[in-house]
Design a protein around this nucleic acid. Structure first.
Lengths: 196, 196, 196, 196
DNA sequence: CATGAATGAGGCTTCATTCAT
DNA sequence: AATGAATGAAGCCTCATTCAT
């Protein structure tokens, strides 16, 4: 019923990002998103099942792109070390470039309900897979320790990048997020490489 | 106006934890919490300003205790390495012991609004300070690298512990959370110790 | 959850009758009924599950009373002929006495949806039973023909009384409804008595 | 503006009968009727003023035909008794032959609003006239009692036939409707003929 | 004639909070 | 201090109708 393509589909998603970033998740009424997108309230429902569907679609569209970009850049790097560096850098630089989107994904969408959290699971799993692939490749190449628990290391990497970005957003994006790439990379690299 | 002590104050907070863990944040209406606590709806407002205040108080009471316990245990350890280990262990073991509370703090309260997120900031800062103190102590003792960026390392530590715990809760607390202490500790230790 | 007794319960039902009679089923918004009953919109939902429940309750309360009154009066009559007469008379005189209620039951509630039509089925069955009992008693007493098909005769009786009343309501209740009792009674009596 | 003829005009009416019979009055949106009729939503409005106009037209087309058929068959009978029999038989047999139409006229269209009820008045009056003509002819011929109140007897006849048909539809058209013709006819005949 | 994407008004219901008892 | 009945604001969504193509 809801056709998920077209100019207005994009306009509504982009409007939703702006409205949620500006007013917060709770004040992001459908009518406000419609107004921001310059369509009628009812038009929303030609493109989305319901309000949750807007948010899930928003997340999947934007994060899907985020994951895809990161996967592509990582694949262009050769060694696992380089891949790890690229992954950290791409994660932070992408979010740096769109403050509204960063605010929405780091803060506002976390306030969403169960339905939405389930709806965004698939994309997140893809990202988790990417991170785990890099770790496993490093282990195979003998660059990282053989006793690393892949899932734990992945949670460290994602948890750190996520926490760093959330802090940056909460501090109004005042400093350069990418300036921390090296520090973070070093923590990861040494943690996964290092011998006692 | 709201007196924040007494038997009923505690009863309401504990009821809120149970109701939110069982039914989720969105279904945790004030009337349900009142019923679970065996008080009248209106009684809630003799002890709390409003609904947000219940949630903020809940978080501060429980997390305040969590931070205090961790601070105390950490202070009992001698070296920074030991402190780091104790911190990781205490973080995970405490949350292991109360599934309801873990679910509420890791999942449900993340769905709360801006007000609440601000209200819980103070306690979180205290915890962040504790982590940073351990890091700085390790640097001062020459155990950790001198070029660590303390805030970044702290975000790594907290982000990892937080991510690990959230995963565990989302997997229905099926495995032993504390069994991952060593893996996590090693990642942190090597990351912060190791030389290039 | 919804408590179906009390002063306000009655006030809301009576307000609903007035609002529906005055404005029609489609314009009988919950907010209008609340206003007419001098309660807040939300109060409605302390006494009724939802809007349909108001209408079903209204019908069951009023028609339940209608059926009970008719059953009682009929039981006081001796012969089946007298019972039939009393039934016709009581049916018409009761509806004569409350124009608003007559309009609601004869016209407006017919416009209601499936849910409501199912909800009012039980009371209607009780009324149908009463009519059939009178017919069967007359057959047993040898007053009515032995070859009458009870269900058909009941549909004749109810259909006629219903049609007569509906016409009267649609003509703005301008004439005396009870003045037709004898004509109707004779049609029924002869139809059920007479021999070929 | 709306042209009430043509292939599509009929297609839309027939589609409306099917959709309403299948899905009920409330779920019979204009868009569904358009889809069933294989025309665009907007096309509906080239043939009908508005949604009510579809329903009124449907009723008038179908019931107009129903009345005409009945009038014609009745006119072919000689005595009033025969005419009455034919009327009862034709009423029931016609509705027997189109379950969808029967469901729509007996159940679904009763849920319609005031506008529609007024719109269908003219055809109904014609049918009422037909019934009354039969009664009056019987009286003139001395077959029926001279003291019959024509309008009351007409309401009995119509109310009975209507009630019988409605019951049949609500019982899923499981039994043979025309099998009741004789019973009903006898009730009418004796009621209108019989002497004390 | 025909299309179908777009419109936007309108109502039921929930639930945090109050206040008379 | 405690109660719980009453309040009323606020928002998602549907669907009849229009109009540019």
């Amino acid at each position: 019923m809801a056709k998920k393509t077209g100019e207005k589909y994009q306009a509504i998603i982009d409007a939703a990002v702006r409205v949620i970033a500006r007013q917060g998740y709770y004040s992001a009424q459908v009518s406000k998103i419609a107004k921001e997108a310059k369509v009628a309230d009812g038009t929303i429902y030609l493109y989305f099942e319901n309000k949750d569907d807007i948010l899930i679609s928003l997340f999947n569209e934007k994060m899907g792109q985020f994951v895809e970009t990161n996967r592509k850049r990582v694949s262009e790097a050769k060694t696992a070390e380089q891949k790890l560096y690229v992954l950290v850098h791409t994660h932070l630089s992408q979010l740096s470039e769109d403050h509204d989107l960063a605010k929405v994904t780091q803060i506002e969408l976390r306030q969403s309900n169960q339905e939405i959290n389930e709806g965004i699971g698939t994309v997140m799993k893809q990202y988790f897979n990417l991170i785990e692939e890099v770790i496993m490749e490093g282990m195979k190449q003998g660059i990282f320790r053989p006793d690393i628990e892949v899932r734990i290391a992945r949670k460290m990497i994602f948890g750190t990048l996520d926490g760093v970005t959330t802090s940056w957003v909460m501090k109004q994006c005042k400093y350069e997020l990418v300036s921390h790439v090296d520090s973070i990379y070093n923590l990861f690299l040494l943690g996964m490489k290092g011998k006692e």
